[in-house]
Write a protein that binds this DNA or RNA. Structure first.
Lengths: 195, 195, 195, 195
DNA sequence: TATGAATGAGCGTTCATTCAT
DNA sequence: GATGAATGAACGCTCATTCAT
């Protein structure tokens, strides 16, 4: 996937290490020194690129999320129907959780331990995701794929159902195949929205 | 020696203060001293009743949750149909979040920062709640209120939808009436489950 | 020895408990509460009889030592020759260590952790013991039992040799019979003092 | 980068400060912060070099003692007769106490307040010293300098007599010249061991 | 630019002491 | 007198952050 060589900037190394360590330990238990070691750089170097531990946390979180959103938009655009789009989102969501269960785990934690600016960003980010889903549902209604459901309620239900996969998955207790859990959930939701 | 009741034990005072402070600050930022001040007792007194900060957190969390579960079971038993039961749960859930948004906020956080025993308890607790909902849905299916939906998928969707109320509510951004958001969500879900 | 019954005053109970606990834990690690429990009284009661932990320590120490000195004088007076007196002292010393190894252990510790008054008392006490031995040696010289040795040097040597039993005995490593170790030491010392 | 020597490592600075403060206050009353101040470093720096207060105490103690033992062996080897060797030991002992009365003072205290490993090390250390003296006495017997005395008893007496200098010296009450007290003691002991 | 030795503010916890009963 | 619940000063230790090299 990479162009030339495996050249990674120090910044990238640190962000990746931060992901690993924050996810493993949580924000407070994670030590800046451990992140530096994980990244293979000196402790002081971390502060060359990030002004504080909290700043590093925020940056790591943002990068991870924005990457996810980019993937989401990129993939979803290829689907034609609203139903397919939502299905795609559900599977991407599942994949994302599985591959980044670390990030998923700290999403929850992140709400309490950062400043208000970050909280606002996070809230805005979640709204953005919700709006994206809402717009797909509204598109589906417009195209006649769905009934005249309350689009906000439906997107809340959809988002919530996605979210409910978090806990069991991140605790590693969901050893069944993804389609076995995602399909039935989608079925229930789609039934509620179908004409 | 005292007249009527109203008398609160020190333990109760501390638990209530812990709720307030942990919710406001999160586990790590909360200082034991602040909890003591909030409770109107000395710092040492906290340690007369709880062996450590973590222990206090766990106890506070358990008490709050168990109280909620008791309320839930008590109220739900009065409803006759599965639909009414789920509706009841949705509203109680909403009320609980509104009244205990403090507790709601830290539910998420709590997963990372306590020991494995607590994590297990929490996981078991969540399963218990899910099973309760699942059994209501299955009862609804048996009684012919619902179609033959996948009861697990449905309960995940329901739980998830309830959960999705968390974020906006705990961030204090939901200034509409509860029924305006709960009813549409229930409608979507029930449509998906109806015959 | 007791007059009426086994009536023990609270004060005595506390002093005995203090002996046990201070000896087991040392001054700093010993907790006043543990002493109270050991004595079978309430924590507050300790402060009815002793103004502080340090005060309790001092009192306990003084009582123990003075009791030892009384025994020493009482027994020694019965011996007729200086040699016999010193021998008696050596054995009593050994017995005392064995029976009160607890007290012996904290003698050392006690020098650092109390106030100057106590230190002076302790120093005076040790001098008193040394003088007692010195006077016996001088009596021996006067009576022609010993050569004209330097009585101070001799008493230092004698005291020191007694003291050197401390470490091995209090560490419980001396599993030989007392006479097997005391007699040779006395022999060396007496040879050095004999005509 | 620095010119000659004179340069002291932080570790050495801290060990020296520890010696001063532990000796002045005893293990428990000594505050880590005071040691840091005495060393002219920050409190955290102490923990860069020693994992805990107890660890610092043990290291300080070991260094001091091992230095003493090295000095002892180095000097004693130069003496030819057993008598001279013991005399040398006596004077070195006295010097050591005078120069390191701090260390001497806490030797006693140290027995109670450290863990079992340290206690074992201390006990082993004392045995080693005793064995060294015993071997010199046995050498003296073999060479015909001393009578067939019980070498263990004699070494106990010698060690004890040395030890008895502790108390008066460390309390600063011995304002006489060292030879005035050491020579008579040696005389008594040697008389007891001579042919 | 990169480093890691040095730092000290900050916090959890202990326990001697007090005092209302 | 006797009690033990309540207290808060005190201290060991951590770790984010700095800065001289």
């Amino acid at each position: 996937m990479e162009a030339k060589a495996a050249e990674k900037t120090k910044r990238e190394l640190i962000l990746e290490a931060a992901m690993v360590v924050f996810a493993r330990e949580g924000f407070y238990k994670a030590k800046v020194e451990d992140i530096a070691i994980e990244a293979g750089v000196g402790k002081g170097t971390v502060y060359e690129y990030f002004s504080s531990k909290a700043e590093l946390f925020k940056e790591m979180f943002k990068e991870g999320m924005e990457k996810f959103i980019r993937t989401l938009h990129g993939e979803v655009i290829q689907a034609s129907t609203a139903r397919e789009k939502l299905k795609k989102i559900a599977y991407l969501h599942y994949d994302f959780i599985m591959k980044n269960r670390d990030l998923a785990k700290i999403t929850m934690e992140s709400q309490n331990q950062c400043d208000d600016d970050f909280r606002k960003w996070l809230f805005g980010f979640q709204n953005q995701k919700m709006d994206f889903i809402k717009s797909i549902i509204e598109e589906g209604i417009a195209k006649g794929e769905f009934r005249q459901v309350d689009s906000r309620a439906a997107s809340l239900a959809f988002t919530g159902a996605m979210g409910s996969l978090f806990a069991p998955v991140t605790f590693g207790k969901l050893d069944i195949k993804p389609e076995e859990i995602i399909e039935p959930i989608l079925k229930v939701l789609f039934e509620g929205m179908s004409k």
